[in-house]
Write a protein that binds this DNA or RNA. Structure first.
Lengths: 99, 99
DNA sequence: CTTATACTTCGATAGTCATCGAACGATCCG
DNA sequence: CGGATCGTTCGATGACTATCGAAGTATAAG
C-alpha cells in the first residue's frame, strides 16, 4: 500500500540531488523557479528578475537550473519558454522529506 | 478540511527559508543532518565527518545548521548532543513542495 | 594538580560563484 | 538588407565560504 506514486517516482543520483540543493540555495534562482512553477511555459523575458539583474546573469541562472534538471528551456522565435520539470522537483522534495 | 497539520505547522520567515536552503546546499552539512535525523540526540563526536574534516570545520557546520534553526545543540559533559528540529525542517519541506 | 578529551573561536587561505559589460548569434520586422 | 529584440558566451571582479592550524574554554579522569 503506497501513497502518491502516480508519476512513477524518479530516482535522483547523489550528484543530481546535490546539484538541486545548490541550485535552490540562491534566492534569485528560487524566485525564478517559483515563477516558472506558477506559470509553466512562461517566457523567459517575463521574469521579474529583468528588473534587477542583467540578461547575462539571468542566463547564467537558467543554465544552473537547467543543468540541475529543474527546468527545461525551449527556444521559440527570439525568446525562450520555461518549463518546470516537476517529477525531478518532486523527487527532490520527497527525498528531503524522507530523512 | 486539512491534511497533516498535527504539529501546528511552523511559519518560516523568508530569511529563515533561505538560510535553510543555504545550509542544505553543502554536502557535508546535509550528511550531518541526515545522521542527526537518523539518531536524534546523538553525540557530536560520533559524526562520520570526524574521519575527514577537522573539528574546527565541523564546529563551523554545526553553527550554520543551528543558526538556520535545523538543529539544537546541548552541551553535556565534554561533549554535545544534537537534536533535529523537525517542525522547522518539515515546514521547509512543505513550503518547498507547495510552489 | 595535571593530563586528556570535546568542542569553540580566530585569522588566514584557497576556491567558488553571483554579477557585470562587451561581444556574439539568432530571429523577427520594416 | 538593416535595425531591433532576446538570449548566450566570455573574461574579469568582488564577495562569500569551506577549510585548516593554533590557541582557548570547559569538563572529566588519573
Amino acid at each position: 500500500m503506497k501513497k502518491k506514486d502516480s508519476v512513477a517516482e524518479v530516482k535522483l543520483s547523489e550528484e543530481q540531488f546535490q546539484a538541486i540543493a545548490r541550485a535552490l540555495s540562491d534566492p534569485r534562482r528560487f524566485a525564478i523557479l517559483r515563477q516558472v512553477a506558477a506559470a509553466d511555459g512562461m517566457e523567459c523575458a517575463s521574469l521579474e528578475e529583468h528588473e534587477c539583474i542583467s540578461p547575462a546573469t539571468i542566463s547564467h541562472h537558467m543554465k544552473e537550473l537547467n543543468e540541475a534538471g529543474l527546468i527545461e528551456i525551449t527556444r521559440v522565435g527570439r525568446g525562450a519558454r520555461l518549463f518546470l520539470c516537476r517529477p525531478i522537483f518532486t523527487a527532490y522534495v520527497n527525498r528531503l522529506a524522507s530523512i
